[in-house]
Design a protein around this nucleic acid. Sequence first.
DNA 1: ATGCAGTCCTGTAAGC
DNA 2: TGCTTACAGGACTGCA
Length: 276
Amino acid sequence: MPELPEVETVVRDLRPRLVGAAIARVTTSREKLRRPWKKIWTSRVIGAKFEAIHRRGKWIIIDLDNDGRLLLHLGMTGQLTVVDAATPLTDHLHLRFDLNPKNRQLRFRDPRRFGSADWFASESELNAFLDDRLGPEPFDLNPAAFRTELTRTNRSLKALLLDQKVIAGVGNIYADETLYRLGLHPETRASDVPRNLVEKLRAMIPTVLREAIEKRGSTIRDYIGGSGLEGGFQNEFRVYGRDGEPCLKCKTAIETVRVAGRTSHFCPSCQKRVVK
DNA sequence: ATGCAGTCCTGTAAGC
DNA sequence: TGCTTACAGGACTGCA
């Protein structure tokens, strides 16, 4: 669920609450996330201090001061928060880290369990895992490389934007919002995008994501930031979730179509399918 | 090699 | 009211 802006918000919220604190205890309740939390990992992290926290694509990386790395993914419904240790426990709480000395806890809750929590012994092991799955950050897209990526494939634009190896961090909401702003139909073949729009598309992706980060991401249902606050960008959606409602530019009713296995929202009038 | 469909899981909302 | 079905921010696997 959470896409790049939501994950970035969580990381920013957690940073001041985590860095400098040490892990006193690890509690797993239902060790059935996408991958199970291994018991040996607990002994590796006890006593270590949180040194830094950052984001890569939709992944959250926590550097520990003993070179270990925690890697978390929120999946569709994951919530990662730091709360007072006395805060009542909730359902679907899979991982708890008791922090020292602040009497607080880092909690990972995930009802749908599509999320994951992994431990790596070093930065290089972590990077091997991530580099296998992720392409460039949307803020570092190289114009020429992006153009090549589009030209050399038959895939739909929507499928391309959702491909984490092409751009790390974009998900269903921000793919739809980006395409709407450029008047591009989600089913357009990437290689059919008019030349003058390729660079505009490359630039629009980070623009939309930055705006969303400004608003602390989007809360549709479950998403909350690292401090428990909801996002605000859902109030800024121009097409996502607006099916049946009038297009903000031309009043035509917004429609949905299934592309690359995901529901895609678009204006049938402003976003004509380009076919070369 | 490439791209799609199906799968993992639970909660919620819509439909009958 | 209650049961059934469809769908949801993602990633991965297997198959064509």
